[in-house]
């Protein structure tokens, strides 16, 4: 009875989330029952694939929730990956990751300077970051270096023994766990803390925030820089954790995909994570179908499946998604 009452007290949003999560779990365990380790393999891929995307999408959410469009996530990630890797070859992976995060934050701050202080069009500023990142990382790349140390895999005691979920979620690497934490923390912070309320107000109606003494510029600076830090971390995740190497252009469009995920996730950390997991699931299924050779379809068609599905989903269900109202608008005090 208590549970029923508790359910009733939940907001429709939380209730839907709960229903979705439960449905997903049931489906996952049915699949696990039928296909056993193959289900684990697909879901494991889902988590790995989605993690950098989710992290990058968090960057987008932080920026846009406070009213700044960040189309330079791709570039911030790439530079983050570059710096993190070479940092790791020079002074170890901890240094590398921190360096990647710091440089990401600097690029975020650069975007903030452009958007808030110089009032440059934000799409241009982001594009500048993207071009510069591609050029600089490629120009200064030197091969033949290896990281000092490597990211370990941490198995969380007890949790790791849960069938299916244990292997999928609790036998991962540090930055992956960090991403889980960031998503959850960000979700809570955005909707439960003063900082979150103010951030959302700054992104929706900056003058309303201003008139109650919230420093709009400062919030935008802080959040866009923090967003850049997250993008840098996502880059570090790619180079130092997921691959252990840096290659030119290794972000392969993930920064742009993150924007799509952010929008699909309606600018909410938890939903964006779900969207990222959805992409991961699709791509994992693609691989598994290839492995099993159950279908004789050219990989190109399988490769475009996630994209076609996304468009169909958006066209059918999402309807008009509502961006933070002031996203992309520079704020001038009257």
């Amino acid at each position: 009875m208590g549970i029923v009452n508790a359910l009733r007290r939940l907001s429709p949003d939380s209730r839907n989330t709960l229903v979705a999560v439960l449905t997903g779990l049931v489906a996952a365990y049915i699949a696990y029952g039928i296909w056993d380790f193959k289900a684990t393999a697909v879901l494991g891929f889902m988590v790995r694939y989605s993690t950098p995307l989710a992290l990058a999408a968090m960057c987008g959410i932080l920026c846009e929730r406070s009213g700044v469009v960040n189309i330079g996530i791709e570039g911030q990630m790439l530079v983050g990956a570059f710096v993190a890797f070479f940092g790791a070859t020079w002074a170890g992976i901890v240094f590398g990751v921190v360096a990647g995060v710091v440089v990401g934050a600097l690029l975020g701050a650069f975007l903030a300077v452009c958007a808030v202080s110089w009032r440059i069009n934000q799409i241009i500023a982001g594009t500048v970051i993207n071009i510069l990142a591609a050029g600089v990382t490629s120009f200064f790349y030197r091969q033949g270096r290896t990281m000092k140390g490597s990211m370990p895999t941490w198995e969380i005691p007890l949790l790791k023994d849960i069938p299916l979920l244990g292997k999928v979620f609790f036998q991962n690497q540090p930055l992956t766990y960090l991403t889980f934490a960031i998503v959850i923390v960000l979700q809570v912070m955005l909707f439960r803390t003063p900082w979150g309320l103010r951030t959302r107000a700054v992104g929706e109606h900056p003058s309303a925030a201003d008139t109650v003494g919230v420093n709009v510029s400062l919030y935008r600076y802080g959040n866009v820089a923090a967003g850049g830090a997250l993008a840098g971390l996502a880059g570090a995740l790619l180079s130092v954790e997921a691959t252990g190497t840096f290659e030119r252009g290794m972000t392969s469009g993930r920064g742009f995909l993150a924007l799509a995920i952010m929008i699909m996730g309606r600018w909410r950390p938890s939903l964006a994570w779900a969207a990222a997991l959805f992409f991961g699931l699709l791509n994992g299924l693609v691989n598994q179908l290839n492995f099993e050779r159950v279908i004789d379809v050219p990989p190109q068609f399988i490769g475009m499946l996630p994209d076609v599905l996304t468009i169909v989903v958006l066209a059918t269900f999402a309807g008009r998604v509502r961006a933070p109202a002031a996203s992309g608008q520079p704020y001038t005090k009257e």
Binding site: L197, A201, E204, H205, A208, A209, T211, V212, R322, A325
Partner: peptide, 11 residues
Amino acid sequence: QLVPVMTVAEN
């Protein structure tokens, strides 16, 4: 100076 998408209490 109210944020339309937020609740009265939040505003």
